[in-house]
Design a protein around this nucleic acid. Structure first.
Lengths: 335, 335
DNA sequence: AGCGCGAGGGCAATCGATTGCGCCGGTAGA
DNA sequence: TCTACCGGCGCAATCGATTGCCCTCGCGCT
């Protein structure tokens, strides 16, 4: 690997000049002839500036850490794409991390920043981490943007418009004439779950529909939880005729469980879910979903972080553009 | 952020001594009293060595780049877990990249290493990249380990035991009494696809079964491709009674398509697939699969790379431990 | 008294790139 | 002729940590 010194030697100038030419320092007074010599030397030697040296000098590693509880989640993949996009535009790289449950995760996260491996962190919160535990893990010196969750008293969060998403899903069912509409919510207390539930509740109220307590099951986000929740719904004395499910993966589990129980979708039960992935599309019946801008979520989160690294204070953001959109497939039908 | 100098000052010694104490240099002659003072100072100041400075000094970034064509793939997630594990054990981080199609991807990959952002790269090959194109992208100065693929004339590859996996799947169908067994293979020329197809062909031959040409469809890896392939199979004059599908995602698409076409799984058609993900389990019917050690694949690949960075020449490896295992679910049954 | 030796530490170079400031020669204005 | 200024460059410090080598005692031995 040639260094700047090599280029300078080849061009017959000092490092300083070489550096100024190659970084395009406009205030530098360097003759055009010298500029050309330096550039040609760099070209010939295939010079690439050392990221490591720059990192040291600028006290900036040029990387953001992306910490997610579960990489398996398809939801994560889209988001990651957005993060990569944004990071790439800023010349930064994305370092993937995993949060182990505290306290082991505690140290790792701070270290990542303290060591200077990353300049900041995008964190998608673990479900089993409550507010105070999270606050403790973060400390207040670490530049962190929370994805899809908020922490009271702390700014720097980017979330989807979950309320609107859930409203859209619920409204769709209402418009199809359903009146007994259930909700498979996510984990209780989970930020996203709470917001989606809110959207459901609001829309039901607006439509003048009542919600029987047994129609709301707070399960998890994954397929197994969805299946379990579906069973609980089926036990209800007056079954709902339609379900809003808070996550695709749970919806898949639910639809699968319904099928096994002899409940046909959509003939006997309509199902609509929030978030759209290839699985929803591949399923039989293909799932009607509400598509939320996951990629944009990633972009926005990364954007807020980079902005902050540039000096701006952290912001809280709701990613509402593009707006949630209903993707009509086969799992819902008029009553 | 306190620096080593700060620690040294606080302990009343020079940087040299502080460094030697903190790095645990055993050859260093430092009195026990001094050692303690330094350690306490470091503790008090919450000193964490700067990764950036170390990176510069050691000419090592302490990160590996993981480049995959598609993060969405569940297969990727498990593998990533393994990579993280191994990297973590070695104190390295994982930088996630994406390969754009060449030529733009060309530059990016080399830059990543040339800039020194990563010390080496784990590369899962894009399907649309043929051998010579790949060879060109790589050059020969970049430490690269190819995942699930090989490049003639170049060592450093870690692959699953795809042949054994496909054999196991095929044998399962044979044992169930199936004789007309089809194969939804992956993209032609793709390394993994070729090996899996080989396992299928070998096992069929051993069982004395013949393969009608129209029973083998070379589709892609994804759900849509699987669905498309299933349709082609159904057009065959003498339909197979069972299918070996080379990838879960394609299998999901295929089963879905079969269902829509009124072909029941497993009553009318048994389906077994290679690779096991949550989707296979969540499906209705749950898919019988062959589980391959993806996590181990990640670990092994990362291991080979790190080993190589340590000076060992690159190796080629087949990850055969744990051995492929049949996961019996609902999508296959005796003829 | 003189010498050798080892324990205990510090100096300074190094890894590459960036940048404030100073040096030198030439020219224009006084 | 002298001062000022400017164009064109180079010196050297800096970002933190590591490490080969040198320096300085103090002690023991002759």
């Amino acid at each position: 690997m040639p260094t700047l010194q090599d280029v300078a030697d080849a061009a017959g100038v000092s490092r300083s000049v070489a550096s100024r030419v190659l970084t395009g320092d406009s205030r530098a007074r360097v003759s055009e002839a010298t500029r050309t010599r330096v550039r040609e030397a760099a070209e010939a030697l295939r010079y690439v500036p050392s990221h490591r040296a720059r990192a040291l000098r600028f006290r900036r590693s040029g990387a953001v850490g992306l910490i997610v509880p579960d990489v398996t989640n398809a939801v994560f993949a889209d988001m990651l794409g957005g993060v990569q996009d944004k990071a790439g535009e800023a010349g930064m790289s994305v370092l993937l991390g995993q949060v182990d449950p505290p306290p082991s995760g505690h140290g790792r996260l701070r270290e990542l920043v303290a060591e200077g491996r990353v300049d900041g962190v995008l964190l998608q919160r673990r479900e089993d981490l409550d507010d105070s535990a999270l606050a403790r893990v973060l400390g207040d010196d670490v530049p962190v943007v929370l994805i899809n969750s908020r922490l009271p008293g702390r700014s720097g969060s980017v979330v989807l418009d979950d309320v609107a998403g859930a409203r859209l899903a619920t409204r769709h069912l209402v418009e199809l004439g359903h009146e007994r509409i259930g909700h498979l919510a996510g984990v209780p207390h989970h930020d996203t779950a709470v917001r989606r539930h809110q959207g459901y509740v609001e829309t039901m109220a607006e439509a003048g529909l009542t919600i029987a307590p047994e129609w709301v099951v707070r399960a998890g986000w994954e397929a197994a939880a969805g299946a379990e929740a579906a069973h609980r719904i089926l036990e209800a004395p007056r079954r709902p005729t339609a379900l809003v499910v808070s996550s695709v993966n749970a919806a898949v589990g639910a639809v699968s469980a319904l099928g096994r129980a002899g409940v046909r979708v959509p003939e006997d039960m309509s199902v609509v879910t929030v978030l759209d992935t290839w699985v929803a599309q591949a399923w039989n019946p293909a799932l009607t979903t509400v598509r939320l801008p996951l990629r944009e979520l990633g972009r926005a989160a990364c954007g807020v972080l980079i902005e902050h690294l540039g000096g701006t204070p952290l912001r809280d953001l709701v990613v509402a553009d593009p707006a949630p959109r209903l993707v009509l497939r086969e799992s819902t039908r008029a009553l």
